[in-house]
Structures are given as structure tokens and as C-alpha cells.
């Protein structure tokens, strides 16, 4: 067993059998990536470097873009449309959901174009093709981390100023909700991204469809408004579908991690409204995980099925 694992962990150059025939280009899916961690790291570094090459502000743009988006929404949805009065702590609420949806958009978009943007490599050298969507995910993750830090600091400040005791809000439940949110959205975005990446090799329409989906993603999840607002106006069945979507479920996990629970203790909201919702919170999240799992499995199967044709079609 130990031998098997250590064999898996060895670098790819050592793992190629020298005295046994093997069929070139046969992959074991994600398992192959275990041996390619160094290459994965370099591919991620390349993407990050190339993206901001020749720009004066460079990486600072990863802060500016989401911040501008946040400001616009905060002013117009928060003040003009009255989100501030309806949702407690609207700033944090908005930023938590928005950063997660932005993360989803980026992973989804980057995964979809990952094979095409690395066409030179895919066409000429055999590498486990899963490398490209996974590298795209890792790139998005590096962009997400600064947003996360801002979020964490902001919610700390607010929690502390409103209720000093709540400094201990970073308990196990919240950290778990945060991790689950990231996991859920990653599984979903990578799965969907692999499906669209495969289609995109054959039909470029996939790229455009992804643009449309990412345009809508902020609006079809409880980011700019409260889920209660939606439950009041939408038919029940539609509301259920809406809440089961992995994006909504992940956004709610983030809301839970950063906004909800801690503000209900002794705050101006006498009744913890969130608890009403909490009854369905867990089933919604479980279903969302199920959906993400299906997407990932279908994505991997499609990828595997058409992988042999990627090189010649690109």
C-alpha cells in the first residue's frame, strides 16, 4: 500500500515504464495530475505572469476590478434600490456573494477556454489534458485570495464594532461553511468548465454561451438581494430550484460564514430570520453538492471520451 502510494507520488519521468510496453496518450484522468504538481505550478505561474504582462499596475488590477464592481452595486443596489434597508450588513453581504460569484465566473470562463488558449501545447505535446482546467482553477484561486482577505478583515471589523464578544465568531462552523462554499463552487465550476471546454474544442459557440451564463450568474443567485425577497415573489417550485443551484447554495454558505449567524446574537434583529431558513439550508446544500458531483463526473467522462481528438481538432 505504502509502496503503491509512493509510486503514485513519484515524478512522471520516473513513472514511465522502461521495460514494459504502454500505449502512449492513455490517461488516468485526474490521477495523472498527482505526478505533475511541478508542471502545474509552472503553468499557473505562466498564466498569472502572461495575463498582466506589460501593464503598469500588474497584479493590482485583480483588486481594482472586483472593487469597482462592488462599489457600483453597493451604491446602486444598496442605496438607490434600497438593499441597505432590507438586508442587514448589506456591504459584507454583497461582497461575500459577489466575490464568490466572480470566482465562479472566472473559473468557469477560464476552464472553458483553457484548451483553446493552450492549443499550441495540446496540439503538439502529450500531457494529461486535465492539467489545463485545473491550472485555470488555480489561477482563479490566486485572484480570489486577495478578495477573501479583504472580506475577512471587513467582517472582523464589523463584528467587533457591533458586538465585541463576537470576536470569537471564527469558530468551527463558520470556517467549515467557508471551506464548503469554496469546495462546492469549485466542483461545479470545474465540472461545468470541462463540459464546455470539450464542446469548445469542436464548436466555438460554447465560449459565447459561457459569456451569457456568466453575465446572468450574479442575478440568478442571492447576491444583490435577500433570498426572502425572492421567496415572497417567486412560485414555490421555482424558489426551490433557485436555492438548489450550486451557485446559490455556495453563496448562502458564504453568507453564513461571513454575515449571518454572528450578527443575530443580541443585535437589532430580534428574531434570527436565518434560522427559519436554516431548516432547508442543509438539504439545499446537499442537493447542490449532488448536482456539482454530477457535473464533475459528466465533465470528466466527456473529457476522457473526446480527449483523443483534441489535438487534431484544435
Amino acid at each position: 500500500m505504502v509502496k503503491k502510494i509512493s509510486k503514485l507520488l513519484r515524478t512522471s519521468s520516473e513513472i514511465v515504464p522502461r521495460d514494459k510496453f504502454y500505449t502512449p496518450g492513455s490517461s488516468r484522468g485526474f490521477l495523472d495530475l498527482v505526478n505533475q504538481r511541478f508542471l502545474l505550478k509552472l503553468l499557473v505561474a505562466k498564466e498569472v505572469k502572461v495575463r498582466y504582462r506589460g501593464s503598469y499596475l500588474g497584479q493590482v488590477w485583480t483588486y481594482i476590478k472586483p472593487f469597482v464592481l462592488f462599489l457600483i452595486y453597493f451604491m446602486f443596489v444598496g442605496y438607490v434600490m434600497g438593499g441597505n434597508d432590507r438586508v442587514y450588513n448589506f456591504g459584507i453581504y454583497l461582497f461575500a456573494g459577489l466575490s464568490l460569484v466572480q470566482f465562479f465566473n472566472e473559473v468557469f470562463r477560464n476552464c472553458t477556454i483553457s484548451l483553446r488558449s493552450n492549443a499550441a501545447l495540446v496540439r503538439k505535446i502529450y500531457l494529461p489534458r486535465e492539467l489545463f482546467p485545473i491550472a485555470a482553477w488555480r489561477v482563479a484561486l490566486t485572484h480570489f485570495i486577495p478578495q477573501f482577505v479583504i472580506l475577512l478583515v471587513a467582517s472582523f471589523v464589523i463584528a467587533f464594532s457591533s458586538h465585541p464578544v463576537n470576536l470569537f465568531f471564527l469558530d468551527f462552523k463558520h470556517i467549515l461553511a467557508f471551506c464548503l462554499g469554496i469546495l462546492l463552487i469549485s466542483l461545479f465550476a470545474i465540472g461545468a468548465g470541462m463540459i464546455f471546454a470539450t464542446i469548445n474544442v469542436f464548436y466555438r459557440d460554447a465560449e459565447n454561451l459561457v459569456e451569457v451564463i456568466t453575465m446572468c450568474s450574479t442575478w440568478i443567485s442571492p447576491v444583490l438581494y435577500d433570498y426572502r425577497l425572492f421567496s415572497e415573489i417567486a412560485p414555490h417550485w421555482f424558489y426551490n430550484i433557485f436555492m438548489c443551484s450550486p451557485i446559490s447554495a455556495a453563496v448562502e454558505l458564504f453568507h453564513y460564514a461571513f454575515v449571518y449567524d454572528r450578527n443575530f446574537r443580541g443585535d437589532r434583529w430580534a428574531i434570527p430570520v436565518h434560522w427559519v431558513y436554516a431548516a432547508n439550508f442543509i438539504p439545499y446544500t446537499l442537493i447542490a453538492f449532488g448536482i456539482s458531483g454530477v457535473f464533475l463526473v459528466v465533465g470528466q467522462i466527456l473529457f476522457h471520451r473526446f480527449e483523443g481528438r483534441f489535438a487534431q481538432e484544435l
Binding site: P17, T23, P24, G25, I125, A311
Partner: peptide
């Protein structure tokens, strides 16, 4: 032979890196 493309029929097998 490198495995970048896959044959439509027949087989390719190699040994070593």
C-alpha cells in the same frame, strides 16, 4: 507515437520515456 493523437484503428505501443 507520442500519444498526442490516437489512431482510428490499430495500435501503438512504446517502451521508455
Amino acid at each position: 507515437i507520442t500519444g498526442v493523437q490516437r489512431p482510428d484503428a490499430g495500435s501503438v505501443r512504446v517502451k521508455g520515456k
